[in-house]
Design a protein around this nucleic acid. Structure first.
Lengths: 248, 248
DNA sequence: CGCTGAGTTGACAGGTGTCAAAGTACGTGG
DNA sequence: CCACGTACTTTGACACCTGTCAACTCAGCG
């Protein structure tokens, strides 16, 4: 089975699995050559922290393979996930010296890092990079706003269903979205990470997953392997229009 | 008193109150001339809808004066505010034909609109616009993520305190942020709009405002006029570090 | 003067958090 | 090979925060 969290270090950009989706997507070969000179790959183990909020950050970069989370923590320990970083997603903010959020790898992960200063200089003279970054940032803003509706207005059950449908949809888009038939995927997050994503406790997450299983909305094998027999049913449980959302 | 929601239609860009903060901030005079040819002003009354989610949008633009909200609504009527649009904020997404959210003016409001097609064409050849838009979008993404922590992890009391401190800070930045002494401002939102912002009901908003008043965190005159005797106290109630956040 | 919209307050119910205990999977070391 | 420890997960009991429903106040206005 194709494991999306597998450790993959490309030989070069032509070999890179995120070549056509990352911040470098619009770059031409001469531009790639210049990026090549300021880039390096870094690997992280599952659970390893990439950077702490407030730390100095002298790189920006793209997730090549694996999954990472962006989280914010209050003084008393309450934490909220504010971003889920998948392959091709961008990490860091050009022009900013310090990290705003904790970045943690939740699976084995590989990043393509660019030294920050040279990257910023290159952005000024390379519209292709800034254009693509703008597009990606606008997409992330839309995703964040969608997420705000989930956090602010949905019930625990709807929140779980929403998260499952997001993951299911993403997996479908990787495996050549056949909408028909059951969807099958593995949860890339622990119950606790799901709770941090959804603004719940891990106990509530566990209870609602059990409830959705009892009601036949999902089928579980083990703790992480999920089958969705009827995706429209899942969408209804998420409180979403059953037609929309295929754009994501 | 300087009323930030007053209706102001600039004679030209040199006269524009958001000239140095909006999407056109980095444009030079020749670029402004070209923008001038594709722009027009539109006024809205308090409560008027600028555009409905799903509607075709043939303009993008900037809020010149007044306040608008960006909201998302579920089929059963639950609504969540996903953006608060203040003067200089950008409305619409270049490259997208239809609106994603409802945009509603909550006060009398003036927008500087650009016809979408010519604006998109101009963006391609005018890096100054795309650069500024990227910067603004990154700021909005940060704000959305801060908001996600509020929605996901804060109590009703902390949510109210967070909203008040955001509004207080913004007003302070307009009136040349003297941090000492009490802060005084008017709430630009109804209780219901505050509830939609914070993922609460309007009853809970009302109760928590009353509680903060009883505890001396704020002083109310009428329903909308607020005095904050001790801003650090308010920050503590919001669950935030009492030092941080002066960047916003 | 009554109507309307915004806001406040009370009573009550229900959803979610908290605390606690037990179950499961998996790797490590004896 | 098996016992054990650790991390993750599930489930139960109960409390409490917030939502729901309802009544009431207040200010503005025709």
């Amino acid at each position: 089975m194709l494991n999306e969290t597998a450790k993959v270090i490309p030989r070069d950009c032509g070999d890179c699995p995120i070549r056509h989706r990352a911040v470098c997507a619009r770059c031409e070969s001469e531009e790639l050559d210049r990026l090549d000179k300021i880039k390096y790959y870094r690997s992280f183990e599952a659970g390893q922290t990439v950077i702490w909020a407030g730390d100095k950050m002298d790189f920006v970069g793209s997730v090549v393979s694996g999954i990472a989370t962006l989280t914010q923590t209050m003084e008393d320990g309450r934490t909220q996930m504010v971003g889920l970083l998948l392959p091709s997603d961008f990490v860091g903010r050009p022009g900013r010296e310090t990290a705003t959020y904790d970045v943690v790898a939740t699976s084995e992960m590989v990043m393509c890092c660019f030294r920050r200063k040279p990257f910023e200089e290159m952005m000024v003279v390379t519209p292709h990079i800034a254009q693509r970054l703008l597009e990606m940032t606008l997409d992330e803003l839309d995703a964040a706003r969608e997420w705000m509706l989930v956090l602010g207005r949905k019930t625990a059950r709807e929140k779980i269903a929403s998260l499952l449908s997001i993951i299911a949809r993403r997996d479908a888009s990787l495996t050549f979205g056949k909408t028909a038939g059951p969807m099958v995927f593995d949860l890339p997050l622990t119950r606790e990470a799901m709770a941090d994503y959804l603004g719940l406790t891990l106990e509530t997450v566990s209870r609602q997953i059990s409830a959705l299983r009892k009601d036949g909305v999902i089928v579980l094998e083990g703790k992480r392997h999920v089958t969705v027999p009827d995706f429209n049913r899942l969408m209804e449980e998420a409180g979403d229009d059953s037609d929309g959302g295929l754009l994501a």
